[in-house]
Design a protein around this nucleic acid. Structure first.
Length: 465
RNA sequence: UGCCUGGUAGCUCAGUGGUAGAGCAGGUGACUGUUAAUCACUUGGUCGUAGGUUCGAUCCCUACCCGGGCAGCCA
């Protein structure tokens, strides 16, 4: 007999005389003549109520079906006599597949997120994490759907890379050399030429530069994969390993890039609302009361677009005192970004055209500006509660200006020979951005800590599981 | 990395310079078409680690370890 998922049983339109369910016991309530078992198989937030009558021969096994045990139930799907659920299953055959004794850590009560992180191998069986990871799965699908429907091609950029100065933070070294006894060059330095790849290699901090290669061939591409930053960041929104989505579009300028970013974020929110409604209701009830209202609000209105120069004026005229003083040329700090999106505009804000000096070498220089007010066509999308969720730019497609940018950032042209070739041969205007998948999940679920939207979080000092 | 904050029963927490309590979980019993069921009884802790002050430290001091928050870095 084929297995029926709890989700499908709950959505049944008619009773069913013979049904098979498999899953884990969430809670059991014993009555004199029968027991109630709430069965969950991860297919939905809500479980299915199982009735095991004491007259059933298998009833002797019910006492072993404690919270956490895995069970198999053959039975009849019938309309429930009790309140609280439409359908329930009256068991005809009841089997405990795997017991869970009193040491099972998940209890029928609220646990702290900190405790659940310590049992990351069991927390997917909780309501909250079941919901988080169902949404994560759905949104990963929605990412591909959004881009595939728009003619983008999915590119697998390398995870191991030799590009070591992309300006996106510290990198993890990848090496097979013996750390205790590495080969040395005559002058005493570690001889990286003898390493596995014959040179220094790292885990990628971004697939953007390789993405540009494919955008200047396939026109519109996106990457979606793991990214690594060896920053010693102790915050609720940084992880050493996270997933990033990086579209790159040829024949596209900054406005097109901002349009794409806005459409993408809205698509993901709309998709979650449509396909994960019960899970989002759960978050709205137990994690963040404002969640659903905020998501609706974000969908309804166009995002505000505000140039860096305007943003600095707003911040200067706000009358607020800043921990980090703000003036033209300084980077926007978290407190500034939070003010813009949470207090001043009260909606998602795209800040664009940042000072050239504080942005990456590959960003396109804007023309016709005073020498002390030069900007690049960069943009950051800020959302309430999280801050920066997207960072992107139009890329510098003019060879001479790209070389100038590299000189400003003290980069060696030789290391980027292939990147410069893209400007030597058939260069086109192009633009792209990076969206932190976990930050998007935090925004959609209301979950406040990045460690709780990653199955197994890697943060400084922590790599359990 | 800097600053702040916490570490007491399996979990969530209270508490006091004289070596500790509650709720939940577990156990036993009762009761019930129950919904994190309910009621009664009950098991359970060298109070993060190592020093120091003191007649005496879980409590005060120092260091360290671990968790969390904020800032910087960014996605």
């Amino acid at each position: 007999m084929p297995r029926t998922l709890v989700k499908d049983a709950l959505n049944a339109t008619a009773p069913n005389d013979a049904i098979l369910l498999q899953g884990w016991v969430r809670t059991r309530r014993d009555a004199k003549a029968f027991s109630f078992i709430e069965l969950n198989d991860g297919s939905s937030l809500k479980g299915l109520q199982i009735i095991v009558d004491a007259s059933l021969p298998d009833y002797v096994h019910v006492t072993r079906a404690n919270t956490g045990a895995s069970v198999e139930v053959h039975g009849k799907l019938v309309e429930s006599k009790g309140g609280g659920q439409k359908w329930e299953v009256v068991a005809t055959k009841f089997t405990v597949l795997g017991e869970a004794d009193a040491t099972y850590p998940l209890q029928k009560k609220g646990h702290t997120l900190e405790f659940l992180r310590e049992i990351a191998h069991l927390r997917p069986r909780s309501n909250l994490f079941g919901a988080v990871f169902r949404v994560r799965s759905r949104l990963a699908y929605a990412v591909h759907q959004f881009f595939q429907e728009r003619g983008f091609h999915y590119v697998h950029t390398p995870i191991i890379t030799a590009s070591d100065a992309e300006g996106a933070g510290n990198m993890f070294r990848v090496t097979t050399l013996d750390p205790a006894n590495p080969p040395k060059t005559p002058d005493g330095a570690v001889d990286c030429a003898q390493d596995f790849f014959g040179k220094k290699t790292f885990l990628t901090v971004s697939g953007q530069l390789e993405g540009e290669i494919f955008a200047t061939a396939l026109s519109s591409i996106y990457t979606f994969g793991p990214t690594f930053r060896a920053e010693n960041s102790h915050t609720s929104r940084h992880a050493a390993e996270f997933w990033m989505i990086e579209p790159e579009v040829a024949f596209c300028d900054l406005n097109g890039d901002m349009d794409l970013a806005e459409a993408f974020v809205k698509h993901l929110i709309r998709d979650a609302k449509e396909h994960c409604a019960a899970d989002l209701e759960f978050f709205s009830k137990f994690v963040d009361k404002e969640l659903l209202a905020r998501l609706d609000f974000v969908l309804d209105k166009p995002f505000v677009r505000c140039s860096y120069t305007e943003a600095v004026e707003i911040l200067t005229k706000s009358g607020k005192t800043w921990e980090h003083p703000i003036s033209w040329g300084a980077n926007l700090q978290a407190e500034h970004e939070r003010y813009l999106t949470e207090e001043h505009f009260k909606c998602p804000v795209t800040v664009y055209n940042y000072p050239r000096a504080i942005k990456a070498f590959y960003m396109r220089k804007n023309d016709g500006e005073a020498p002390d007010r030069q900007t690049v066509a960069a943009m950051d999308l800020l959302v309430p509660g999280i801050g920066e969720i997207i960072g992107g730019s139009q890329r510098e497609e003019r060879l001479d200006l790209l070389k100038e940018g590299m000189a400003l950032h003290h980069l060696d042209e030789k290391a980027y020979w292939w990147y410069l070739d893209l400007r030597r041969y058939g260069s086109v205007p192009h633009a792209g951005f990076g969206l932190g998948f976990e930050r998007m999940l935090m925004f959609v679920t209301g979950v406040a800590n990045i460690r709780d939207v990653i199955p197994f979080a890697r943060t400084p000092g922590t790599a359990e599981f």
